[in-house]
């Protein structure tokens, strides 16, 4: 069964040239700046054709800025395609930017609730999950503290524990495992494995070619927002590594 289908999808960003215009700037230059072009366009994705079937394990690779994370966000429904069509059947759970979006004045317990609610839990259903989540995060008494005092590692622990507490249908992951201390990373990897085996489909972005080759059957290589190639994990990863090695050699020479 086809779970995800992207049909000639493109995504064009409007990027503002400057940050927010301050009130002073608005008074001083506002009128003149308006006349100049205040934004430019970035073609982040172009001509993406992709189908994800039941029990697919798809990896996405490519250099920084190739559009990998953008593609994930588009798959998750956070970005709409600006051209082409996106069709999704099933509930998507996504793991990216997970350390963002905490209410920093609330404590760990409360944040578990809020995140849970956002993922569609109810007060009753979250009550059963809150203890396992707390245990998995191993944050103990820190959970009684406002999140504003958490270190970034602690935030990732908490976020990961919440996000993975609900069994996903379609799982979309963006290199979450790179944070947290060693003990937690091992644990997180174990949990990811079990999630991946239970999910109906998995899409993962990573720079870790070894684990990608183990996890995925298919790999998509993105370059400058375009599909460079897609196929069996081994072949695509081999081609990608080769190209990178050549680049290194050329630089060395």
């Amino acid at each position: 069964m086809t779970l995800i289908k992207l049909d000639d999808v493109g995504l064009k960003f409007q990027v503002r040239r400057a940050g927010r215009i301050s009130f002073k700037d608005y008074l001083l230059h506002g009128l003149f700046r308006r006349s100049k072009k205040t934004s430019f366009e970035v073609q982040a994705l172009e001509n993406i054709n992709l189908t994800v079937e039941e029990s697919d394990r798809l990896g996405i690779i490519g250099p920084n800025g190739a559009g990998k994370s953008t593609l994930l966000k588009l798959l998750a429904g956070i970005y709409p395609p600006t051209s082409g069509r996106r069709k999704v059947v099933g509930r998507i759970s996504s793991l990216f930017d997970i350390a963002l979006g905490f209410e920093t004045d609330a404590n760990g317990w409360e944040n578990i609730m809020y995140r849970g609610y956002l993922q569609g839990e109810t007060p009753r259903s979250i009550r059963k999950k809150i203890q396992p989540i707390a245990e998995f995060s191993e944050l103990g008494d820190f959970l009684n503290m406002p999140v504003r005092y958490y270190s970034s590692g602690m935030k990732v622990r908490l976020a990961f524990s919440i996000a993975t507490a609900i069994a996903p249908e379609i799982l979309i992951v963006d290199e979450v495992l790179s944070a947290g201390d060693m003990a937690f990373q091992t644990k997180a990897r174990e949990r990811m494995k079990s999630l991946m085996s239970s999910a109906r489909a998995v899409i993962v972005v990573s720079h870790d070619m070894k684990s990608l080759e183990l996890m995925c059957d298919r790999v998509l290589w993105l370059d400058h927002g375009k599909m460079r190639s897609i196929g069996p994990a081994k072949e695509v990863i081999k081609a990608y590594t080769q190209q990178n090695n050549q680049g290194e050699k050329r630089q060395a020479a």
């Binding site: 429904g77 956070i78 996504s94 930017d97 997970i98 963002l100 979006g101 956002l118």
Partner: peptide, 9 residues
């Protein structure tokens, strides 16, 4: 913003 960027609601 941080919620909007993470979850389509």
């Amino acid at each position: 913003e941080s919620y909007i960027r993470q979850h389509p609601a």
